[in-house]
Design a protein around this nucleic acid. Structure first.
Lengths: 209, 209
DNA sequence: TGTTCGTTGTGAAAAAAATCACAATAAATG
DNA sequence: CATTTATTGTGATTTTTTTCACAACGAACA
Protein backbone atom coordinates (compact mmCIF):
# COMPACT_ATOMS: atom_id res chain seq x y z
CA UNK A 1 0.00 0.00 0.00
CA UNK A 2 2.75 2.45 0.91
CA UNK A 3 5.39 2.07 -1.73
CA UNK A 4 8.59 3.97 -2.20
CA UNK A 5 7.11 6.67 -4.42
CA UNK A 6 4.41 7.28 -1.90
CA UNK A 7 6.97 7.82 0.88
CA UNK A 8 8.98 10.10 -1.36
CA UNK A 9 5.90 12.17 -1.96
CA UNK A 10 5.36 12.35 1.78
CA UNK A 11 8.85 13.79 2.16
CA UNK A 12 8.10 16.29 -0.56
CA UNK A 13 4.90 17.35 1.08
CA UNK A 14 6.83 17.82 4.28
CA UNK A 15 9.35 20.06 2.56
CA UNK A 16 6.62 22.11 0.96
CA UNK A 17 4.87 22.42 4.31
CA UNK A 18 8.01 23.65 6.00
CA UNK A 19 8.32 26.32 3.36
CA UNK A 20 4.68 27.32 3.70
CA UNK A 21 5.05 27.43 7.46
CA UNK A 22 7.98 29.79 7.16
CA UNK A 23 5.66 31.97 5.09
CA UNK A 24 3.35 32.04 8.11
CA UNK A 25 0.70 29.77 6.70
CA UNK A 26 -1.35 28.15 9.45
CA UNK A 27 -3.34 25.76 7.34
CA UNK A 28 -2.89 24.25 3.94
CA UNK A 29 -5.15 22.63 1.34
CA UNK A 30 -4.54 19.57 -0.74
CA UNK A 31 -4.25 21.66 -3.85
CA UNK A 32 -1.57 23.92 -2.33
CA UNK A 33 0.55 20.86 -1.68
CA UNK A 34 -0.32 19.42 -5.06
CA UNK A 35 0.93 22.56 -6.77
CA UNK A 36 4.09 22.68 -4.70
CA UNK A 37 5.02 19.09 -5.41
CA UNK A 38 3.58 18.67 -8.89
CA UNK A 39 0.91 16.05 -8.33
CA UNK A 40 -2.88 16.11 -8.28
CA UNK A 41 -4.85 17.15 -5.20
CA UNK A 42 -6.51 13.75 -5.00
CA UNK A 43 -3.11 12.15 -4.96
CA UNK A 44 -2.26 14.22 -1.92
CA UNK A 45 -5.47 13.30 -0.18
CA UNK A 46 -5.14 9.64 -1.05
CA UNK A 47 -1.58 9.58 0.26
CA UNK A 48 -2.73 11.15 3.49
CA UNK A 49 -5.65 8.80 3.80
CA UNK A 50 -3.31 5.79 3.50
CA UNK A 51 -1.62 6.96 6.68
CA UNK A 52 -4.79 8.05 8.41
CA UNK A 53 -3.93 11.73 8.17
CA UNK A 54 -7.14 13.70 8.17
CA UNK A 55 -7.98 17.36 7.75
CA UNK A 56 -11.12 19.40 8.09
CA UNK A 57 -13.75 19.58 5.43
CA UNK A 58 -13.47 23.03 4.02
CA UNK A 59 -10.72 23.85 6.49
CA UNK A 60 -7.82 21.97 4.97
CA UNK A 61 -5.00 20.71 7.15
CA UNK A 62 -3.52 22.39 10.20
CA UNK A 63 0.15 22.90 9.33
CA UNK A 64 1.60 22.13 12.75
CA UNK A 65 -0.37 18.96 13.23
CA UNK A 66 0.37 17.82 9.71
CA UNK A 67 4.08 18.39 10.13
CA UNK A 68 4.12 16.38 13.33
CA UNK A 69 2.21 13.56 11.73
CA UNK A 70 4.53 13.44 8.74
CA UNK A 71 7.61 13.53 10.92
CA UNK A 72 6.27 10.71 12.99
CA UNK A 73 5.43 8.61 9.92
CA UNK A 74 8.85 9.27 8.43
CA UNK A 75 10.56 8.30 11.67
CA UNK A 76 11.99 11.73 12.22
CA UNK A 77 10.82 12.32 15.75
CA UNK A 78 14.19 11.36 17.17
CA UNK A 79 17.72 12.19 16.02
CA UNK A 80 19.12 9.61 13.62
CA UNK A 81 22.79 8.78 13.92
CA UNK A 82 24.64 7.93 10.74
CA UNK A 83 28.19 7.25 9.59
CA UNK A 84 29.91 8.10 6.31
CA UNK A 85 32.13 5.45 4.78
CA UNK A 86 34.62 6.68 2.21
CA UNK A 87 36.04 10.14 2.74
CA UNK A 88 36.66 11.11 -0.87
CA UNK A 89 35.20 14.09 -2.64
CA UNK A 90 31.60 13.28 -1.94
CA UNK A 91 32.18 11.89 1.52
CA UNK A 92 33.98 15.05 2.52
CA UNK A 93 31.24 17.23 1.08
CA UNK A 94 28.66 15.33 3.09
CA UNK A 95 30.66 15.66 6.30
CA UNK A 96 30.77 19.41 5.82
CA UNK A 97 27.17 19.69 4.70
CA UNK A 98 25.15 21.53 7.30
CA UNK A 99 21.69 20.67 6.07
CA UNK A 100 21.44 17.39 7.95
CA UNK A 101 21.25 18.89 11.40
CA UNK A 102 17.98 20.67 10.74
CA UNK A 103 16.43 17.46 9.46
CA UNK A 104 17.30 15.47 12.55
CA UNK A 105 20.19 13.56 11.04
CA UNK A 106 23.58 13.56 12.71
CA UNK A 107 26.77 12.26 11.13
CA UNK A 108 28.73 10.89 14.05
CA UNK A 109 31.79 9.45 12.37
CA UNK A 110 33.57 8.94 9.07
CA UNK A 111 35.61 5.94 7.98
CA UNK A 112 38.25 5.47 5.33
CA UNK A 113 40.87 2.93 4.41
CA UNK A 114 43.55 5.59 3.95
CA UNK A 115 45.37 6.49 7.21
CA UNK A 116 46.21 9.91 5.74
CA UNK A 117 42.56 10.77 6.20
CA UNK A 118 42.26 9.72 9.82
CA UNK A 119 41.48 12.45 12.27
CA UNK A 120 40.52 11.22 15.69
CA UNK A 121 40.38 14.68 17.23
CA UNK A 122 37.90 16.44 14.98
CA UNK A 123 34.31 16.92 15.96
CA UNK A 124 33.29 14.15 13.63
CA UNK A 125 36.17 11.69 13.93
CA UNK A 126 37.56 10.00 10.83
CA UNK A 127 38.62 6.49 11.69
CA UNK A 128 40.00 3.41 9.98
CA UNK A 129 37.89 0.77 8.30
CA UNK A 130 39.27 -1.87 10.62
CA UNK A 131 37.59 -0.34 13.66
CA UNK A 132 34.31 0.36 11.88
CA UNK A 133 32.39 -2.79 12.80
CA UNK A 134 33.29 -2.37 16.42
CA UNK A 135 32.28 1.30 16.38
CA UNK A 136 28.93 0.52 14.74
CA UNK A 137 28.12 -2.04 17.38
CA UNK A 138 29.33 0.05 20.30
CA UNK A 139 27.28 3.05 19.21
CA UNK A 140 24.29 1.09 17.95
CA UNK A 141 24.38 2.65 14.48
CA UNK A 142 21.80 1.51 11.99
CA UNK A 143 22.47 3.87 9.08
CA UNK A 144 25.41 4.45 6.76
CA UNK A 145 26.24 6.60 3.76
CA UNK A 146 28.50 4.78 1.35
CA UNK A 147 30.75 7.01 -0.74
CA UNK A 148 33.57 4.67 -1.67
CA UNK A 149 34.77 3.88 -5.21
CA UNK A 150 32.63 1.35 -7.09
CA UNK A 151 35.14 -1.48 -6.83
CA UNK A 152 35.17 -1.23 -3.03
CA UNK A 153 31.42 -0.93 -2.50
CA UNK A 154 30.53 -4.61 -2.31
CA UNK A 155 33.39 -5.31 0.05
CA UNK A 156 32.45 -2.49 2.40
CA UNK A 157 28.85 -3.68 2.30
CA UNK A 158 30.05 -7.05 3.61
CA UNK A 159 31.58 -5.22 6.56
CA UNK A 160 28.53 -3.12 7.28
CA UNK A 161 25.87 -5.81 7.21
CA UNK A 162 27.17 -8.13 9.93
CA UNK A 163 27.96 -5.10 12.08
CA UNK A 164 24.28 -4.31 12.22
CA UNK A 165 23.68 -1.61 9.60
CA UNK A 166 20.07 -1.71 8.42
CA UNK A 167 19.89 1.22 6.00
CA UNK A 168 22.37 2.49 3.43
CA UNK A 169 22.47 5.43 1.12
CA UNK A 170 24.87 4.38 -1.59
CA UNK A 171 26.70 6.89 -3.76
CA UNK A 172 29.02 4.37 -5.36
CA UNK A 173 28.12 4.10 -9.03
CA UNK A 174 27.00 0.49 -8.79
CA UNK A 175 23.55 -0.81 -8.05
CA UNK A 176 24.13 -2.40 -4.63
CA UNK A 177 21.70 -4.91 -3.32
CA UNK A 178 21.59 -6.46 0.08
CA UNK A 179 19.55 -8.92 2.09
CA UNK A 180 15.85 -8.45 2.84
CA UNK A 181 16.52 -6.85 6.19
CA UNK A 182 18.72 -4.04 4.91
CA UNK A 183 17.36 -1.12 2.93
CA UNK A 184 19.67 0.30 0.28
CA UNK A 185 18.94 3.40 -1.74
CA UNK A 186 21.28 4.02 -4.61
CA UNK A 187 22.11 7.52 -5.79
CA UNK A 188 23.99 7.40 -9.03
CA UNK A 189 24.81 10.84 -10.25
CA UNK A 190 25.99 9.74 -13.68
CA UNK A 191 22.78 7.80 -14.11
CA UNK A 192 20.70 10.79 -13.11
CA UNK A 193 22.54 12.90 -15.62
CA UNK A 194 22.08 10.26 -18.25
CA UNK A 195 18.40 10.40 -17.50
CA UNK A 196 18.30 14.16 -17.89
CA UNK A 197 20.21 13.88 -21.14
CA UNK A 198 17.77 11.32 -22.48
CA UNK A 199 14.75 13.48 -21.81
CA UNK A 200 16.46 16.59 -23.16
CA UNK A 201 17.17 14.71 -26.36
CA UNK A 202 13.62 13.50 -26.78
CA UNK A 203 12.95 17.21 -26.24
CA UNK A 204 11.43 17.75 -22.92
CA UNK A 205 8.67 15.19 -22.58
CA UNK A 206 7.08 15.47 -19.18
CA UNK A 207 7.93 13.00 -16.50
CA UNK A 208 7.77 12.95 -12.75
CA UNK A 209 11.08 13.89 -11.31
CA UNK B 1 5.54 4.07 -23.35
CA UNK B 2 9.06 4.90 -22.23
CA UNK B 3 8.67 6.52 -18.86
CA UNK B 4 11.31 7.66 -16.44
CA UNK B 5 11.61 4.38 -14.57
CA UNK B 6 12.08 2.58 -17.82
CA UNK B 7 14.96 4.87 -18.81
CA UNK B 8 16.50 4.48 -15.39
CA UNK B 9 16.41 0.73 -15.82
CA UNK B 10 18.09 1.14 -19.19
CA UNK B 11 20.93 3.02 -17.49
CA UNK B 12 21.19 0.28 -14.91
CA UNK B 13 21.35 -2.39 -17.55
CA UNK B 14 24.09 -0.42 -19.22
CA UNK B 15 26.09 -0.28 -16.00
CA UNK B 16 25.67 -3.97 -15.44
CA UNK B 17 26.71 -4.68 -19.01
CA UNK B 18 29.85 -2.60 -18.63
CA UNK B 19 30.76 -4.62 -15.59
CA UNK B 20 30.06 -7.91 -17.36
CA UNK B 21 32.10 -6.77 -20.33
CA UNK B 22 35.05 -6.03 -18.08
CA UNK B 23 34.69 -9.62 -16.90
CA UNK B 24 35.16 -10.68 -20.53
CA UNK B 25 31.57 -11.66 -21.16
CA UNK B 26 30.74 -11.55 -24.85
CA UNK B 27 27.02 -12.16 -24.62
CA UNK B 28 24.48 -11.75 -21.93
CA UNK B 29 21.01 -13.13 -21.22
CA UNK B 30 17.97 -11.34 -19.95
CA UNK B 31 18.20 -13.16 -16.64
CA UNK B 32 21.82 -12.09 -16.10
CA UNK B 33 20.77 -8.49 -16.40
CA UNK B 34 17.68 -9.11 -14.32
CA UNK B 35 19.81 -10.49 -11.49
CA UNK B 36 22.29 -7.64 -11.72
CA UNK B 37 19.65 -4.96 -11.58
CA UNK B 38 17.04 -6.64 -9.43
CA UNK B 39 14.12 -6.96 -11.82
CA UNK B 40 12.50 -9.87 -13.64
CA UNK B 41 13.87 -11.23 -16.92
CA UNK B 42 10.64 -10.40 -18.72
CA UNK B 43 10.96 -6.82 -17.55
CA UNK B 44 14.36 -6.68 -19.21
CA UNK B 45 13.05 -8.14 -22.43
CA UNK B 46 10.03 -5.91 -22.47
CA UNK B 47 12.18 -2.82 -21.89
CA UNK B 48 14.40 -3.84 -24.77
CA UNK B 49 11.46 -4.56 -26.99
CA UNK B 50 10.09 -1.05 -26.41
CA UNK B 51 13.25 0.31 -28.01
CA UNK B 52 13.48 -2.33 -30.67
CA UNK B 53 16.54 -3.96 -29.15
CA UNK B 54 16.58 -7.58 -30.16
CA UNK B 55 18.80 -10.50 -29.28
CA UNK B 56 19.11 -14.04 -30.55
CA UNK B 57 16.81 -16.79 -29.53
CA UNK B 58 18.87 -19.04 -27.36
CA UNK B 59 21.89 -16.83 -27.93
CA UNK B 60 21.06 -13.86 -25.68
CA UNK B 61 22.39 -10.42 -26.51
CA UNK B 62 25.77 -9.55 -27.97
CA UNK B 63 27.37 -7.30 -25.37
CA UNK B 64 29.07 -4.89 -27.73
CA UNK B 65 26.03 -4.35 -29.89
CA UNK B 66 23.81 -3.98 -26.86
CA UNK B 67 26.08 -1.40 -25.32
CA UNK B 68 26.12 0.64 -28.50
CA UNK B 69 22.37 0.49 -28.77
CA UNK B 70 21.88 1.58 -25.18
CA UNK B 71 24.35 4.42 -25.52
CA UNK B 72 22.61 5.59 -28.62
CA UNK B 73 19.19 5.47 -26.96
CA UNK B 74 20.51 7.29 -23.93
CA UNK B 75 22.08 9.96 -26.09
CA UNK B 76 25.59 9.13 -25.01
CA UNK B 77 27.21 8.77 -28.38
CA UNK B 78 28.67 12.25 -28.22
CA UNK B 79 30.32 14.12 -25.36
CA UNK B 80 27.85 16.15 -23.31
CA UNK B 81 29.01 19.51 -22.03
CA UNK B 82 27.68 20.62 -18.68
CA UNK B 83 28.20 23.43 -16.19
CA UNK B 84 28.05 23.42 -12.40
CA UNK B 85 26.30 26.31 -10.71
CA UNK B 86 27.12 26.83 -7.04
CA UNK B 87 30.64 25.95 -5.95
CA UNK B 88 29.95 24.94 -2.37
CA UNK B 89 30.69 21.58 -0.82
CA UNK B 90 28.80 19.51 -3.32
CA UNK B 91 29.64 21.65 -6.32
CA UNK B 92 33.34 21.37 -5.51
CA UNK B 93 33.07 17.61 -5.06
CA UNK B 94 31.43 17.30 -8.45
CA UNK B 95 34.10 19.43 -10.13
CA UNK B 96 36.76 17.12 -8.74
CA UNK B 97 34.85 13.95 -9.45
CA UNK B 98 36.59 11.95 -12.13
CA UNK B 99 33.78 9.53 -12.96
CA UNK B 100 32.08 11.80 -15.47
CA UNK B 101 34.78 11.60 -18.10
CA UNK B 102 34.35 7.91 -18.66
CA UNK B 103 30.61 8.34 -19.12
CA UNK B 104 30.96 10.96 -21.80
CA UNK B 105 30.09 13.94 -19.63
CA UNK B 106 32.40 16.92 -19.43
CA UNK B 107 32.08 19.72 -16.92
CA UNK B 108 33.33 22.75 -18.79
CA UNK B 109 32.80 25.53 -16.26
CA UNK B 110 31.64 26.38 -12.77
CA UNK B 111 29.74 29.45 -11.63
CA UNK B 112 29.30 31.07 -8.26
CA UNK B 113 28.14 34.35 -6.87
CA UNK B 114 31.12 34.67 -4.55
CA UNK B 115 34.16 36.33 -6.21
CA UNK B 116 36.42 34.55 -3.72
CA UNK B 117 35.67 31.36 -5.62
CA UNK B 118 36.47 32.66 -9.08
CA UNK B 119 39.36 31.03 -10.83
CA UNK B 120 39.61 31.89 -14.48
CA UNK B 121 42.91 30.07 -14.96
CA UNK B 122 42.08 26.58 -13.80
CA UNK B 123 41.31 23.81 -16.23
CA UNK B 124 37.63 24.14 -15.44
CA UNK B 125 37.20 27.89 -14.94
CA UNK B 126 35.06 29.19 -12.10
CA UNK B 127 33.28 32.32 -13.20
CA UNK B 128 30.76 34.80 -11.86
CA UNK B 129 27.01 34.37 -12.12
CA UNK B 130 26.74 37.60 -14.08
CA UNK B 131 28.60 36.15 -17.06
CA UNK B 132 26.81 32.82 -16.94
CA UNK B 133 24.01 33.48 -19.40
CA UNK B 134 26.46 34.79 -21.93
CA UNK B 135 28.77 31.81 -21.46
CA UNK B 136 25.90 29.34 -21.87
CA UNK B 137 24.86 30.92 -25.12
CA UNK B 138 28.38 31.30 -26.46
CA UNK B 139 29.21 27.66 -25.78
CA UNK B 140 25.79 26.27 -26.63
CA UNK B 141 25.35 24.54 -23.28
CA UNK B 142 22.15 22.65 -22.70
CA UNK B 143 22.84 21.02 -19.32
CA UNK B 144 23.50 22.31 -15.82
CA UNK B 145 24.05 20.91 -12.36
CA UNK B 146 22.53 23.12 -9.70
CA UNK B 147 24.23 22.96 -6.32
CA UNK B 148 23.28 26.27 -4.77
CA UNK B 149 21.53 26.77 -1.41
CA UNK B 150 17.78 26.21 -1.48
CA UNK B 151 16.89 29.89 -1.22
CA UNK B 152 18.89 30.70 -4.34
CA UNK B 153 17.70 27.82 -6.50
CA UNK B 154 14.61 29.40 -8.01
CA UNK B 155 16.48 32.60 -8.81
CA UNK B 156 19.30 30.76 -10.53
CA UNK B 157 16.75 28.73 -12.46
CA UNK B 158 15.37 31.98 -13.84
CA UNK B 159 18.84 32.79 -15.14
CA UNK B 160 19.41 29.37 -16.67
CA UNK B 161 16.14 28.98 -18.56
CA UNK B 162 16.27 32.04 -20.82
CA UNK B 163 19.95 31.35 -21.48
CA UNK B 164 18.96 28.09 -23.16
CA UNK B 165 19.47 25.37 -20.56
CA UNK B 166 17.23 22.40 -21.30
CA UNK B 167 18.22 19.91 -18.63
CA UNK B 168 19.05 20.37 -14.96
CA UNK B 169 20.22 18.09 -12.22
CA UNK B 170 19.21 19.89 -9.05
CA UNK B 171 20.89 19.22 -5.72
CA UNK B 172 19.26 22.10 -3.90
CA UNK B 173 16.88 20.66 -1.30
CA UNK B 174 13.78 22.06 -2.93
CA UNK B 175 11.60 20.42 -5.53
CA UNK B 176 12.29 22.66 -8.53
CA UNK B 177 9.93 22.67 -11.44
CA UNK B 178 10.34 24.36 -14.74
CA UNK B 179 8.52 24.79 -18.02
CA UNK B 180 7.59 21.90 -20.31
CA UNK B 181 10.70 22.26 -22.40
CA UNK B 182 13.19 21.92 -19.56
CA UNK B 183 13.85 18.65 -17.81
CA UNK B 184 14.68 18.87 -14.13
CA UNK B 185 15.74 15.94 -11.99
CA UNK B 186 15.89 16.62 -8.29
CA UNK B 187 18.35 14.84 -6.04
CA UNK B 188 17.56 15.53 -2.44
CA UNK B 189 19.96 13.77 -0.16
CA UNK B 190 18.02 14.46 3.02
CA UNK B 191 14.91 13.11 1.37
CA UNK B 192 16.72 9.98 0.28
CA UNK B 193 17.96 9.47 3.80
CA UNK B 194 14.50 10.06 5.14
CA UNK B 195 13.30 7.39 2.79
CA UNK B 196 15.92 4.93 4.00
CA UNK B 197 15.02 5.75 7.58
CA UNK B 198 11.36 5.10 6.91
CA UNK B 199 11.96 1.69 5.43
CA UNK B 200 14.42 0.75 8.15
CA UNK B 201 11.80 1.63 10.71
CA UNK B 202 9.11 -0.45 9.05
CA UNK B 203 11.91 -3.04 9.19
CA UNK B 204 13.24 -3.69 5.79
CA UNK B 205 10.25 -4.14 3.55
CA UNK B 206 11.41 -4.63 -0.01
CA UNK B 207 11.09 -1.82 -2.45
CA UNK B 208 12.72 -0.92 -5.74
CA UNK B 209 15.59 1.36 -5.10
C1' DT C 1 21.30 -32.80 -41.14
C1' DG C 2 17.84 -33.66 -37.76
C1' DT C 3 16.73 -33.20 -33.05
C1' DT C 4 16.96 -31.15 -28.73
C1' DC C 5 17.24 -27.42 -25.79
C1' DG C 6 17.13 -22.79 -24.01
C1' DT C 7 16.09 -18.12 -24.73
C1' DT C 8 13.77 -14.55 -26.94
C1' DG C 9 9.70 -11.55 -28.08
C1' DT C 10 5.22 -10.39 -27.19
C1' DG C 11 0.11 -10.57 -26.63
C1' DA C 12 -2.80 -11.46 -22.78
C1' DA C 13 -3.61 -11.25 -17.85
C1' DA C 14 -2.82 -9.44 -13.45
C1' DA C 15 -1.43 -6.08 -10.28
C1' DA C 16 -0.52 -1.54 -8.91
C1' DA C 17 -1.06 3.28 -9.11
C1' DA C 18 -3.40 7.38 -10.27
C1' DT C 19 -7.50 9.83 -11.21
C1' DC C 20 -12.28 10.78 -10.99
C1' DA C 21 -16.39 12.07 -9.02
C1' DC C 22 -19.30 12.94 -5.55
C1' DA C 23 -21.46 12.47 -0.88
C1' DA C 24 -20.39 14.30 3.51
C1' DT C 25 -19.66 18.05 6.08
C1' DA C 26 -17.33 22.00 8.46
C1' DA C 27 -16.40 26.84 7.84
C1' DA C 28 -18.05 31.19 6.29
C1' DT C 29 -21.68 34.37 5.54
C1' DG C 30 -25.80 37.00 6.21
C1' DC D 1 -29.50 30.05 12.92
C1' DA D 2 -30.12 28.76 8.13
C1' DT D 3 -27.86 28.82 3.82
C1' DT D 4 -24.14 28.76 0.91
C1' DT D 5 -19.71 27.39 -0.31
C1' DA D 6 -15.38 25.02 -0.45
C1' DT D 7 -12.86 21.14 0.65
C1' DT D 8 -12.17 16.62 2.38
C1' DG D 9 -12.24 11.38 2.18
C1' DT D 10 -12.95 7.52 -0.42
C1' DG D 11 -15.21 3.91 -3.41
C1' DA D 12 -15.33 3.22 -8.28
C1' DT D 13 -12.97 3.71 -12.55
C1' DT D 14 -9.26 4.29 -15.54
C1' DT D 15 -4.63 4.11 -16.70
C1' DT D 16 -0.13 2.40 -16.29
C1' DT D 17 3.15 -1.01 -15.21
C1' DT D 18 4.56 -5.53 -14.39
C1' DT D 19 4.28 -10.30 -14.81
C1' DC D 20 2.89 -14.47 -17.08
C1' DA D 21 3.03 -17.87 -20.43
C1' DC D 22 4.08 -19.76 -24.52
C1' DA D 23 4.96 -19.90 -29.64
C1' DA D 24 8.86 -19.10 -32.44
C1' DC D 25 13.24 -19.98 -33.46
C1' DG D 26 18.39 -20.10 -33.56
C1' DA D 27 22.33 -22.44 -31.50
C1' DA D 28 24.38 -26.73 -30.00
C1' DC D 29 25.14 -31.31 -30.59
C1' DA D 30 24.97 -36.03 -32.15
Amino acid sequence: MANRSCIIRLSRYKNAIIRLKSLNFVRVFSDNLADAVGVTPSQVRKDFSIFGITGNKRGGYQIDTLLEQLNSILGKDSIQKIIVVGIGNIGKALLRYSGFAKSGIKIIAGFDIDPAKYNKESEVPILGLEVMAEYIKANDIKLAILSVPDFAAQQVLELLLPAGIKGILNFAPICLRGPQDCVINNINIEMELENVIYFVNVSGKTRGS
